[in-house]
Simulated assay, not measured.
Amino acid sequence: MKPISRVFIIGWDGAGSFVASANTPNLDRCVRNGTFDFQAQAATPTISAQCWGTLLHGVSPDKHGLTNEIVSHTPYPDGSPYPSIFRVVREAYPDAAMASFSAWYPINHGIIEPSIGVHKVSMKDRDLSLAAAAYIREHPEVKLLFVQFDLPDAAGHQYGYNTPGQLQAIEETDGLTGHILEAIEETGLLDDSLLVFVSDHGGGGANPRGHGSDHPMDKTIYWGCVGPGIPRGAAIPGTMSIVDTAAVVVRALGIEPPESWESKLPERLFAE
């Protein structure tokens, strides 16, 4: 079994677990080859800044303190006791190439620390997918790369969540994800990379075109990964939480998690 040399995180904003109702051949291929949970749980409240902040910082919103308003105007403090996965990786690998491609600009502005040398790109989804694929081809030495697509959430707000309009946007996002997977395969990185697939929240529970509540439609998300040591076609024992993503990332890269993190490694995720 090859060691894991890098981690790619591909997030579909607002997709919840609705991907199970959509035609997503790229995601489905990874499901067959990895370990997935389609009943994973988002952070509370089920809002983008709180949820992406929880994923990236390994703690719940009451600790990282991020809201949509804050991340839109205020950079995340470099000295926070709750470092992002990017900061943890930077401290372990000072010369590592790292990148964040986010269709929702506040992730790059207010959730990832500003002074740790992360290559940050914010643009619309299709252009974003091509830019991320180009970066992978140009920087095969990348250690950590995060991608966030916004189309599913935008469609949920416009048409309603888990509706034909949103499912079409999810299917389009799967196609954009294919550009990234193609770049990973073409550069020969697939065999020693961990790929994490996740949504930040769902929607349509308390409000057909909104999210933020504890309703299962808002809280339930998909989470999965594929890579060396990850069981093929398996389910995660118990219930996966979005906060545990951070622990998975640092374990894959051979780094001890910060004591301040609440993030925990799911049992038996990695083959010993």
Rank of each mutant, 00 (worst) to 15 (best):
residue 1 M to K: 05
residue 1 M to P: 09
residue 1 M to G: 07
residue 10 I to N: 09
residue 13 D to Y: 03
residue 15 A to V: 15
residue 18 F to S: 03
residue 20 A to P: 01
residue 20 A to K: 10
residue 22 A to D: 04
residue 22 A to I: 01
residue 24 T to N: 03
residue 29 R to K: 05
residue 29 R to V: 00
residue 30 C to F: 01
residue 33 N to Q: 07
residue 38 F to R: 00
residue 43 A to Y: 08
residue 44 T to C: 09
residue 44 T to E: 09
residue 45 P to F: 01
residue 48 S to C: 02
residue 55 L to Q: 08
residue 55 L to R: 06
residue 56 L to N: 03
residue 57 H to V: 06
residue 57 H to Y: 09
residue 61 P to I: 13
residue 63 K to D: 11
residue 67 T to N: 12
residue 70 I to S: 11
residue 74 T to W: 13
residue 75 P to W: 04
residue 77 P to H: 08
residue 77 P to S: 08
residue 77 P to W: 11
residue 78 D to T: 02
residue 79 G to F: 04
residue 79 G to M: 10
residue 79 G to K: 13
residue 79 G to R: 08
residue 80 S to E: 05
residue 80 S to K: 10
residue 86 F to A: 13
residue 88 V to E: 15
residue 89 V to I: 12
residue 91 E to I: 09
residue 91 E to S: 12
residue 92 A to W: 01
residue 94 P to W: 06
residue 95 D to Q: 08
residue 95 D to I: 04
residue 95 D to H: 15
residue 99 A to F: 02
residue 108 N to Y: 03
residue 109 H to G: 11
residue 109 H to F: 15
residue 111 I to Y: 07
residue 111 I to Q: 12
residue 115 S to E: 15
residue 116 I to S: 15
residue 119 H to C: 14
residue 119 H to A: 06
residue 121 V to Y: 13
residue 125 D to F: 10
residue 125 D to P: 08
residue 127 D to N: 08
residue 129 S to A: 15
residue 132 A to H: 09
residue 145 L to K: 07
residue 147 V to N: 04
residue 147 V to W: 02
residue 149 F to G: 07
residue 153 D to F: 05
residue 155 A to I: 07
residue 155 A to P: 05
residue 156 G to E: 05
residue 156 G to S: 03
residue 158 Q to C: 05
residue 159 Y to N: 08
residue 162 N to W: 02
residue 163 T to F: 02
residue 164 P to N: 10
residue 167 L to Q: 11
residue 167 L to T: 05
residue 170 I to G: 04
residue 174 D to K: 14
residue 174 D to Q: 14
residue 175 G to K: 02
residue 180 I to S: 09
residue 180 I to P: 04
residue 182 E to V: 00
residue 183 A to I: 06
residue 185 E to N: 08
residue 188 G to Y: 01
residue 189 L to V: 10
residue 189 L to R: 14
residue 190 L to V: 00
residue 192 D to S: 05
residue 194 L to Y: 15
residue 195 L to D: 02
residue 197 F to L: 15
residue 198 V to F: 03
residue 199 S to E: 14
residue 201 H to L: 13
residue 201 H to K: 09
residue 202 G to C: 12
residue 202 G to I: 12
residue 204 G to M: 00
residue 204 G to V: 01
residue 204 G to F: 02
residue 205 G to P: 11
residue 206 A to L: 10
residue 207 N to R: 06
residue 208 P to L: 04
residue 209 R to Q: 15
residue 210 G to D: 01
residue 213 S to W: 13
residue 215 H to K: 04
residue 217 M to C: 03
residue 218 D to C: 10
residue 219 K to H: 07
residue 221 I to Q: 00
residue 222 Y to E: 00
residue 225 C to Q: 08
residue 225 C to D: 05
residue 226 V to K: 14
residue 227 G to C: 08
residue 227 G to S: 03
residue 228 P to L: 06
residue 229 G to H: 09
residue 236 I to M: 13
residue 236 I to V: 15
residue 238 G to D: 12
residue 241 S to R: 11
residue 242 I to P: 00
residue 242 I to H: 07
residue 243 V to M: 11
residue 246 A to V: 10
residue 247 A to V: 13
residue 248 V to Q: 01
residue 248 V to P: 05
residue 250 V to L: 02
residue 250 V to I: 08
residue 250 V to K: 01
residue 254 G to P: 10
residue 255 I to G: 07
residue 256 E to I: 06
residue 261 W to N: 07
residue 261 W to H: 14
residue 263 S to I: 08
residue 263 S to D: 12
residue 264 K to W: 00
residue 265 L to Y: 13
residue 268 R to C: 05
residue 269 L to S: 07
